[in-house]
Design a protein around this nucleic acid. Structure first.
Lengths: 338, 338
DNA sequence: CTGAAAGCGCTTACAG
DNA sequence: CTGAAAGCGCTTACAG
């Protein structure tokens, strides 16, 4: 292995000077610099990142803390993860994946000193992992928000997303719009923030319009989607449009509605929010979706965290990005009331 | 920060002895051990992984080298990545994500000394990245195979997968089975191994059955799927079943076949191979799929690499896992010839 | 069974 | 602008 010492010897300088040119930390005379650069080139020297990390007490490694995604693969997750890794890499940082099952394990990992900062996914309104994170004194950014808006976060702007979805449906004449959300294992009132915030935004919008809300909560599966179709049909027969906040139930909802004799979009219009274009195309009729800004969020999260680490920044980042409407064939004019 | 020195002082031993009990590298007297363990507990000491890495010249970090997945999110990818990270973590290793665009960048990263080993995804038959990897002298395992079967790899067993798909279709009376693969940017003859091997397995099977093969190559999009439906209809009108090796084209193929007046599975049976159960459920009629063993492969890859690193192992790992048949509603009896 | 000490390959005040 | 040296927090022969 070629070390900094080898380079220094070949260039006839001290290792300190080599360090200065590699890191640009101090001015070095052009001639000296040239000799050093030549030596680096000739020896094909590459600085050892572990030694650097120990000496500088900065590892330039970021952790992505996430629950176990193996069970329910989600296309937006991979986009988020990959763009975060990509954004980090472009700024000279590495991203390690830390599947964390419990808070204890998380604290242990954080205390090991491997990472300079952490990104936490799937944040809930009350989240003990966030408390641990704060206690660990490792800088971080949340993907999603707790009820403490002062912490650094990036998140989907659900209020704007729901508003736009409702506006889109109202432009087609829909007056009664239902919301289908996802059941989770979380305690009531402590669902993932995305569900609670989207629901709150929906209720606000309905209230502003003077319409009674219709919220249906089902599993994130095809069976859940079918259940939603039945509930909609029986309990809210006058709803002519649905906003889904439940990717996994999308296909089931369409199938279920049809099985009940309701054409899509003839009798029922559907928007699937916070999902991918690909999902929309996968279904017949192609779904109108609000595409989640997963790739953007991944990069923003990495950038926000790195800005914090490098002191490029004053206030903790609070970034909200709405989903993007991608029209498909699942939204049509509201049927005329009989 | 609590260091090993703090623990040593409190327990009245040298730091070497602390290291011995933490790592279990040398026998330590029970009483001494107890004092040290108590000190660790009381100080809430956690060994600094960076210092350990520098001193032991083992970082216990693995790299996952992969092309840019942001563009085309694929559900099997996230399963693979997460299970690899999970498997690594369980054995005390961390997994960093390295999106690599070019060989040069890959070599640079590898030379930094951050990782003990690497996993390379999306391996092609002739793959210059593999040459770089070999040259870097960093231990590795491939996800997929090159034409050099001696290198360590884990891969999907396409031969078995295709055989099982054909068997399944033949049990329903299908005699003429087409294969739809995916067009890539790779040079002809150098497509990702999965495509070439699946095609080879298909051709072998057809030859063994004495049937003329029908291979259609299209983009991995809905449009590609529609194109495949047209080509099938026009060029291979007697094919009554299709095996897809093109996840993105699945929905388009179904839509396209219908648009041409061919019912699924009434007139055309479809199996989508090397994809997810979730994809199958997302389509109407639900697709019969051969689910890719992504989670298994992720864990196996991590384990195989770690086994190599820890010398648990003699021969380089060569692991092949077939996909799993998950029946849906897209396969039915072959239509009777007119 | 335990300790003193060298060393891993860098960075960073400090001095000149 | 450059260098000598301490130090980052561990591991690991080596000696006893």
């Amino acid at each position: 292995m070629v070390t900094m010492r080898d380079v220094a010897e070949r260039a006839n300088v001290s290792i300190a000077t080599v360090s200065f040119v590699i890191n640009g930390t101090k001015p070095v005379a052009p001639a000296t610099r040239a000799r050093i650069e030549a030596a680096i080139e000739e020896l094909d020297y590459r600085r050892n990142v572990v030694a650097r990390a120990l000496a500088s007490s900065r590892t330039r490694i970021l952790a992505l803390l996430h629950p176990d995604f193996e069970a329910r693969p989600n296309a937006t997750v991979i986009q988020f993860v990959m763009s975060a890794a990509h954004g980090a890499r472009e700024r000279g940082y590495d991203l390690v994946l830390w599947p964390v099952n419990d808070d204890e394990q998380m604290s242990h990992l954080l205390a090991g000193g491997l990472v300079d900062g952490a990104l936490l996914m799937e944040v809930q309104i009350h989240d003990s992992r966030v408390d641990r994170l704060v206690a660990s004194r490792v800088p971080f950014a949340l993907i999603g928000r707790t009820d403490n808006d002062d912490l650094p976060y990036v998140d989907i702007d659900f209020a704007t997303t729901i508003d736009q979805a409702v506006d889109h449906l109202r432009a087609f004449g829909h007056e009664r719009v239902a919301l289908v959300t996802q059941r989770t294992k979380a305690a009531p009132g402590n669902e993932p923030g995305r569900i609670m915030r989207a629901e709150a935004a929906y209720l606000d919008t309905m209230a502003a319009l003077g319409r009674p809300p219709a919220v249906i909560t089902v599993e994130g599966t095809s069976a859940g989607g079918r259940e939603a179709a039945r509930t909609l049909h029986e309990d809210f027969p006058d709803a002519t449009a649905v906003i889904l906040l439940n990717e996994g139930a999308s296909a089931g909802l369409v199938k279920g509605a049809r099985a009940l004799g309701r054409a899509v979009p003839g009798d029922l219009s559907i928007i699937s929010a916070s999902t991918t274009r690909e999902l929309g195309e996968m279904i017949e009729p192609s779904l109108t979706v609000m595409a989640a800004p997963a790739a953007q969020l991944g990069r923003l999260a990495a950038d926000a965290l790195i800005d914090q680490l490098e002191g490029v920044q004053d206030a903790p980042p609070h970034l909200l990005i709405p989903c993007t409407l991608v029209p498909g064939q699942s939204v049509g004019p509201a049927p005329v009331r009989p």
